[in-house]
Simulated scan of single mutants.
Amino acid sequence: MIKIHTALFVILMLISAVKVDNIQQNQGTLSQEFAQAPVKHQLSYIDKKDSQMVIPAFSEGRHQPKVKMLSTSTEKKPSEFKQKKKVKSETTSSNDKVRYSNEEIDLLSRLVHAEAKGESFAGKKAVASVVLNRVEHGSFPDSIRGVIYQRNAFQPVTDGSIHDKADQESIKAVKQVAKEHDRTTKAIYFYNPKTATDDWIRSRKIVERIGRHVFAV
């Protein structure tokens, strides 16, 4: 029995020696294969040291999405400090009427009375209209007094009849033209063709005739 056990033990030892030798041979072969094979594994960014890390740059040829930067600053832009200019609306309604003083109304009434004595109500309104048309015209003074007292403009100023008191019809005609803006004519000249001696005034374009007067521009 002892001889049989001894023989089995020897056989097992030989088998173990053969396996160990085969394992060592296989390990040597694997080491040579790994040494010859190309390295395909690269360390990840976590495995590498800081000096070994190379972060790939964005490609300039590719379109990169734009990132909108959100500002956390509470500072206001300079434009926000600028105050908006207050624009005052200066609109003039077409219904607004020019106001004339009582002195101007009285002066114009006396001129109408002197110039259109014996004329119809429309004729008196036309004379008053000529004076106000001149006030608004760029070639004449911009006030009733300035227009009436312009040199050699009206005969009543020269002969003094401008100082005569106006009758009620002349006052009414002036108020209707001045306050109600009811102009009878757009003319800026008028004259009596029977008594006028100035050739220049006769050369003006006639727009209408009322009574003894001719009205022109």
Rank of each mutant, 00 (worst) to 15 (best):
R202K: 15
T184W: 11
E169T: 12
Q168M: 13
Y189G: 05
N133Y: 08
A166T: 01
S143W: 07
H163R: 14
V174Q: 04
D167I: 01
I162M: 10
R151T: 13
V147C: 05
H137N: 14
D198P: 02
D167L: 05
S203I: 03
H181S: 15
K205M: 09
A128C: 05
I206H: 00
G146W: 08
T185Q: 02
V135K: 01
T184G: 13
K194C: 03
N192R: 08
Y149W: 08
R151P: 09
I188K: 10
K186N: 15
N192H: 06
A166L: 03
Q176R: 13
D164F: 10
P193K: 12
F140H: 04
K175H: 12
E136I: 08
I148N: 00
I171M: 11
P156C: 05
D199C: 02
S143H: 08
T197D: 10
D167F: 08
F154K: 00
V174I: 06
K125S: 07
V131F: 03
H181P: 04
Q155S: 09
H137M: 03
I171K: 12
L132M: 04
G138V: 13
F190S: 13
D159C: 05
R145W: 07
N133S: 06
G160Q: 10
Q155V: 08
A173K: 11
F140Y: 13
T185R: 01
A187S: 06
V177C: 09
R151E: 13
V135A: 06
S129G: 06
A166R: 02
T158V: 15
P193E: 10
S203K: 14
R145C: 05
Q150R: 12
G138Q: 14
I162E: 10
V131G: 03
S143N: 04
H181K: 14
I206W: 00
A196I: 15
T197R: 14
F140N: 00
E180S: 12
S129W: 06
D164H: 12
V131R: 05
G160I: 04
D198C: 04
K125H: 04
R134L: 02
Y191K: 01
Y149R: 11
T195Q: 11
T158Y: 10
A173T: 11
N152C: 06
S139C: 10
K194H: 09
L132I: 09
D142V: 09
K194I: 02
I206Y: 00
T195S: 13
D159H: 03
R134A: 01
E180R: 11
I162T: 07
H163L: 14
A166W: 01
D182N: 15
Y189C: 06
A178F: 05
F154A: 01
A126H: 04
K205T: 14
Q155H: 10
Y189M: 09
D167P: 02
K194F: 07
P156H: 05
E136T: 13
D182L: 11
D159T: 01
H181Q: 14
F140A: 01
K175Y: 10
K186F: 08
I144P: 00
E136R: 14
A166I: 02
G160K: 11
I188W: 01
K179V: 14
R183N: 07
K165Q: 15
E180G: 09
S161Y: 01
E169A: 12
H181N: 15
G138A: 14
F190T: 08
